[in-house]
Amino acid sequence: MKRWISFLGHLVIIVVLTSFGKNITNQNVEFVMLPESARVVENTLAAFPKVQESAETYDTNTIFLKNGFQGFKEAIAFKESQGQYGVVNTLGYLGKYQFGANTLKLLGVHDTKKFLNDPVLQENVFELNVSRNKWILRRDIKRFVGKRINGTTISESGIVAAAHLAGAGNVKKYLRSYGKTDFSDAYGSTIAYYVKKFNGYDISMIKSVHNPKI
């Protein structure tokens, strides 16, 4: 009886599928030509966020497809100002990347009002500051990248991000003391935090430059 029931069940499924297939093949199919203006005629880049287990797990490291310089810039910007160009914090740090007036002067910017109202200038200054910090820390980058300090594998991007927070001199002290000498800003961010938070970005496209100016 079990074999007969199984046979009849399979027979019913075959009949249904056959009937369904006939209905599909008997339908009239109309082909429509795609307009020329809507056709893709060259390679097109599209960026999508990495898939995470839930929307809550997205952060500034996963919004961008690649862990390259663009992702590095935007991650720092989000941490510093949530990506807003016109921000001045309670300590007087300016813009999307929160530069101090003294650092801006070193890079050739003397008009802070103009700086706040010029997004292109802010982006250029950030890139110049990365070049400058890479030059100052070039020996430490060569020496410490790949080593572990306070449980974090040191990367070039982590070193440069920490220099943005604390200055290259304090980062040298942190690295050369193997994490025993740290620095904390007024909001509690430390070199150790930045080294870990911004670890693993590829910023090799930015070359080290001695004393760059805008």
Rank of each mutant, 00 (worst) to 15 (best):
M1F: 15
W4Q: 05
F7P: 00
L8G: 02
G9F: 15
H10C: 11
L11F: 14
I14L: 09
V15Y: 14
V16K: 01
S19T: 14
G21S: 14
N23Y: 15
N26M: 06
N26H: 15
Q27F: 13
Q27D: 13
V29W: 15
E30V: 15
E30Y: 14
F31E: 08
P35N: 08
P35M: 11
E36I: 09
S37W: 15
A38C: 09
R39N: 06
V41F: 12
E42D: 10
P49T: 09
K50A: 05
V51H: 11
Q52F: 08
Q52R: 14
E53H: 13
D59C: 03
T60R: 12
N61S: 06
N61K: 13
F64I: 05
N67D: 13
G68R: 08
G68S: 12
F69D: 01
F69I: 10
G71Y: 04
K73S: 04
K73A: 03
E74L: 05
I76T: 01
F78A: 01
F78L: 04
E80G: 04
Q82G: 12
V87W: 11
N89L: 09
G92M: 10
G92K: 14
L94V: 07
K96C: 02
K96A: 00
K96R: 14
Y97E: 00
T103R: 03
L104F: 10
K105V: 09
L107A: 04
L107C: 04
H110P: 02
H110F: 15
D111F: 06
T112C: 07
T112D: 06
T112R: 05
T112M: 09
K113A: 11
F115H: 02
L116M: 06
N117T: 07
N117E: 10
N117P: 13
P119N: 06
P119V: 05
L121S: 02
E123Y: 05
F126E: 00
E127P: 01
R132C: 03
R132F: 13
N133D: 10
K134P: 01
K134H: 05
W135S: 00
L137Q: 00
R139Y: 15
R139C: 05
K142Y: 10
R143F: 15
G146R: 13
K147T: 13
I149P: 00
I149E: 02
N150Y: 13
T152E: 09
T152I: 08
G158E: 00
I159M: 03
A163F: 02
H164E: 03
H164V: 12
L165Q: 01
N170H: 10
N170Q: 11
V171A: 00
K172D: 12
L175T: 02
S177A: 07
G179V: 11
G179Y: 11
T181R: 14
D182A: 07
D182H: 03
D185K: 06
T190F: 05
I191N: 01
Y194W: 14
K197S: 06
I203P: 00
S204W: 12
S204L: 03
S208C: 02
V209K: 06
N211I: 07
N211R: 15
I214V: 11
